[in-house]
């Protein structure tokens, strides 16, 4: 067992392919084939049509910061020592949003901005679980 003390997701039969894809460092999310639209979190049917005509698709893991906060205080002992840190809502290129942390950036509202381009970092926190985190895309 690793020494990881923070809350870990426990995949269920519907969400397991997502977590498996992260473990392989190749994120997949679902698309509704009736509408062509992606959706997140994983579901057993399309939230747009309630159809089961859905599929798993590989995605780039690139997106932009849609919203963010800097956490300065967390009473949960698992996170209390980590403050300040960034929790962000990232909008992927495919149009879906997910919650994550930003890494590789100062946890300061002067250094993080909405619209900031970010890319996924696969964080293997245990042997079983890889969490999706994001870092700023370096200027090329």
């Amino acid at each position: 067992m690793s020494g990881y003390k923070k809350p870990l997701p426990k995949p269920d039969p519907v969400t397991a392919p997502f977590w498996e894809s992260l473990k392989k460092h190749a994120m997949k999310i679902q698309r509704c084939n009736d509408t062509g639209k992606f959706f997140f979190y994983p579901r057993g049917l399309s939230p747009f049509t309630l159809s089961d005509n859905i599929s798993w698709e590989s995605v780039s893991g690139r997106g932009v910061v849609h919203a963010f906060t800097i956490v300065y205080q967390n009473r949960d002992p698992a996170f209390a020592e980590d403050v300040p840190y960034v929790v962000a809502i990232v909008e992927l290129e495919e149009g879906v949003r997910l919650m994550s942390n930003l890494v590789g950036v100062e946890p300061d509202p002067g250094h993080v901005w909405i619209g900031m381009p970010v890319e996924i970092v696969y964080d293997d926190v245990t042997e079983e679980i890889t969490l999706p985190r994001f870092r700023p895309v370096r200027a090329t």
Partner: peptide
């Protein structure tokens, strides 16, 4: 619960609830 949707897709990232949620929205 770790297999709940919040347990899987939010709890791992350490957002204090509910204050962090309202803060995220306010940033927008």
């Amino acid at each position: 619960p770790p297999d709940s949707l919040r347990g899987q897709f939010e709890a791992p990232f350490g957002l204090p609830q509910p204050v962090g949620a309202y803060a995220l929205a306010c940033s927008r």
